[in-house]
């Protein structure tokens, strides 16, 4: 069946790597479902811990979803016109601007958070509201949105397509609506899924910016490990997975599709 020893070796290494990643994950998830972790599975399975997580942290979950959606809307409102502008006016200035938008990628989340705190920390109302975290998330996710849309737009002859629409009587707004947006859709979809996934999972920056009344999903997770029974923290991990894994898979699919179109 196997052609050679190298093939067998390759398979073994792959399986080993998978096990290395999967075993702790499975253990962690199982811990969230067992009655008593220290006694092991023999103590029986239960959904008690999951309910407790829901009681304790449902607010974090809703805050995170709310933040992710708000972040998506803001990055779309800023990112789509920005990507369009960059695609329509290629040149060194555009390249500089693109790099500038991408700067937060190179800066550690921690540093970004500190900068935000220094700048706006004294504005009490703002500092204590969810919009403060939103600003951080937008800064961090915007480059993903812009680049994802830009890659798709740059791959087509947008100028000529728009000129075609213009000769047919379309105003600038109609061209944007009928030509630019539909053709950018694969990039928008990939960007949107990336933004939502990153916003839901972002920890570094959020941990610095959060207040005791504003804990997001990952911040709540850290909190549960620090202050709750191990079973509750593990059940939290399970919920986290259930939310983030399908998104991650959808994101992979959408990005691969967008890349195929951009190529």
């Amino acid at each position: 069946m196997f052609r050679s020893k190298t093939k067998v070796l390759q398979l073994a290494v792959t399986l080993l790597a998978c096990a290395f990643l999967l075993v702790p994950t499975i253990l962690s998830v199982m811990a969230g479902l067992t009655v008593n972790y220290f006694k092991g599975i023999s103590s029986g399975l239960t959904l008690k811990w999951v309910y407790q997580v829901w009681e304790l942290y449902s607010e974090s979950i809703f805050l995170s979803i709310w933040l992710a959606l708000a972040c998506l809307i803001v990055t779309l409102i800023i990112g789509l016109p920005a990507a369009y502008g960059l695609a329509r006016h290629p040149g060194w200035l555009s390249r500089m601007l693109e790099e500038f938008i991408s700067l937060p990628l190179a800066v550690p989340g921690l540093a970004l958070a500190l900068a935000l705190l220094q700048l706006y920390g004294t504005l009490k109302g703002f500092r204590a509201s969810w919009t403060f975290i939103l600003v951080g998330h937008v800064l961090y996710t915007l480059p993903f949105m812009v680049r994802s849309i830009l890659a798709v737009l740059a791959a087509m002859d947008l100028k000529t397509l728009e000129e075609g629409a213009a000769t047919l009587g379309a105003s600038p707004w109609q061209r944007f609506r009928d030509i630019v947006v539909p053709n950018a859709m694969p990039g928008i979809l990939a960007g949107a899924l990336t933004v939502v996934t990153l916003s839901l999972g972002e920890f570094n920056l959020t941990w610095m910016l959060h207040t005791p009344y504003l804990k997001t999903l990952p911040v709540g997770l850290a909190d549960s490990y620090a202050s709750m029974r191990l079973e509750i923290a593990s059940a939290y991990t399970l919920i986290f997975f259930i939310i983030i894994v399908p998104l991650l898979m959808a994101m992979q699919w959408a990005s691969a599709r967008a890349q195929r179109i951009a190529k």
Binding site: D157, T160, L161, E163, A166, L168, G169
Partner: peptide
């Protein structure tokens, strides 16, 4: 007069059909 109000028909060298 801007292009969209001139009522001209144009066939482009590489056609520029709308892929969507």
């Amino acid at each position: 007069l801007p292009v969209e109000r001139r009522k001209v028909g144009m066939v482009f060298q590489f056609f520029a059909l709308f892929p969507n």
